[in-house]
C-alpha cells in the first residue's frame, strides 16, 4: 500500500519549482534595480558634465554667465561649514555617547535621552532648518552666516554621531576597562586613556559618514536662507556663504531658463559625489583596518 502517491507529488512538484525559480528571477531583478538606477544616474550626471569640469570651474567664482561660472565659493563654503559642524558635532555627539554608555547605564535619564535621540533622527531636515532659522538666524541675530548654518547642520547630524559613537564605545571590550580599573585608575582616567582611544576608529568612521551626510544636505540651508546671489568667497565663520548643494539647487531650477545651467549642476554634482566617495572610502578603510584588533 502506498501512503504517498509519488506521481501526484511529482506532478505538484514541477509547478512549485517553476514558481520558485520564477520568483527568484523576479526578486533578482528587483535587487539589481538599484544598481541599474545607480548606473543611469551616474551616467547621466557624468555625460552632462563632460566638458564643464576643469580647473577654471573649480577655481572661479560664481557668475551668471555659464561659461565663466565656477564653484570655488561653494567649495570654500562647504569647507567653512565643516569647520563649524565637525568640532561641534564631535564634541556633542561623543560627549553624549560617553554619558549614555559609561555613566547613565540603565536608568530613566538614559531612556529619555536615548528615545529622544532616535526620535530626533526621524525629524525631517527641513524642520531643523526652521529651528536654525528661528533660533540661530533670528533670535540670536546671527543672520544667515556660516556659523548659523553650521550649528543647524551639527544638530541635524547629532543623532547619527551619537549612535555611531555609542556603538564604538560599546565595542570596546570590558576587559580593557577592568585592566585599567585594576591599576587604580578612576572612571574618567579609564574613559580618557583606554575607552576613547580604543573607540576612535569606530567614532571616526561614524563622524566621517555623518559629515558626508551634512555636506550633501540642502533643505535646512535653503530654509535658513542662503542667498542665491553672487557673494564674496567667505573667509570666516561670520561670513555669508553658499555650498555645493545650493548651487546644484539653483542651477537645476534655473536650467528651465538657461540650458547650460543643467550642465553646471551636473558638473557640481560630479564634484560633490567625488568628495562624498572619497570620504566614504576613508571611512571604510578605517573601519576595515581596525576591525577585530583584540
Amino acid at each position: 500500500m502506498k501512503y504517498i502517491d509519488v506521481e501526484q507529488v511529482n506532478k505538484n512538484m514541477s509547478p512549485r519549482i517553476f514558481k520558485n525559480n520564477l520568483a527568484k528571477s523576479i526578486f533578482f531583478v528587483a535587487a539589481i534595480f538599484g544598481l541599474l538606477v545607480l548606473i543611469t544616474l551616474i551616467y547621466r550626471v557624468f555625460s552632462d558634465s563632460i566638458g564643464w569640469i576643469d580647473i577654471n570651474f573649480l577655481m572661479s567664482k560664481l557668475s551668471t554667465d555659464a561659461e565663466r561660472a565656477g564653484i570655488f565659493g561653494a567649495i570654500m563654503g562647504t569647507v567653512w561649514l565643516m569647520v563649524v559642524v565637525a568640532p561641534v558635532t564631535i564634541f556633542l555627539g561623543v560627549g553624549t555617547a560617553i554619558y549614555l554608555e559609561e555613566y547613565a547605564k540603565k536608568g530613566r535619564v538614559r531612556n529619555i535621552i536615548q528615545t529622544n535621540i532616535s526620535n530626533l533622527a526621524g525629524v525631517p531636515s527641513v524642520v531643523f532648518g526652521i529651528l536654525g532659522l528661528t533660533v540661530f538666524v533670528r533670535a540670536m541675530g546671527l543672520g544667515n552666516i556660516i556659523l548659523a548654518g553650521g550649528l543647524t547642520m551639527a544638530l541635524l547630524i547629532l543623532p547619527i554621531v551619537v549612535v555611531a559613537s555609542q556603538e564604538a564605545i560599546r565595542a570596546v571590550p570590558q576587559f580593557l576597562r577592568e585592566a585599567s580599573y585594576g591599576m587604580g585608575a578612576t572612571k574618567w582616567q579609564t574613559i580618557k586613556n583606554i575607552v576613547l582611544p580604543a573607540a576612535i576608529p569606530g567614532i571616526s568612521t561614524g563622524v566621517i559618514l555623518s559629515l558626508s551626510r551634512a555636506i550633501g544636505e540642502t533643505a535646512p540651508l535653503v530654509v535658513i536662507g542662503i542667498p542665491a546671489l553672487i557673494i564674496p568667497i567667505p573667509d570666516s565663520v561670520f561670513d555669508k556663504f553658499t555650498i555645493m548643494p545650493m548651487q546644484i539647487y539653483y542651477w537645476t531650477i534655473d536650467s528651465a531658463l538657461v540650458d547650460e545651467y543643467a550642465n553646471l549642476a551636473a558638473a557640481t554634482i560630479v564634484i560633490l559625489l567625488i568628495i562624498l566617495f572619497l570620504m566614504n572610502s576613508i571611512a571604510i578603510i578605517i573601519r576595515n583596518k581596525f576591525q577585530k584588533r583584540f
Binding site: L41, G216, E217, T218, T252, L273
Partner: peptide, 11 residues
C-alpha cells in the same frame, strides 16, 4: 544609493 544626497535625486 542611500548615501546619494537628495539634491542629486532632485536633479
Amino acid at each position: 544609493l542611500a548615501g546619494i544626497p537628495t539634491i542629486v535625486y532632485g536633479f
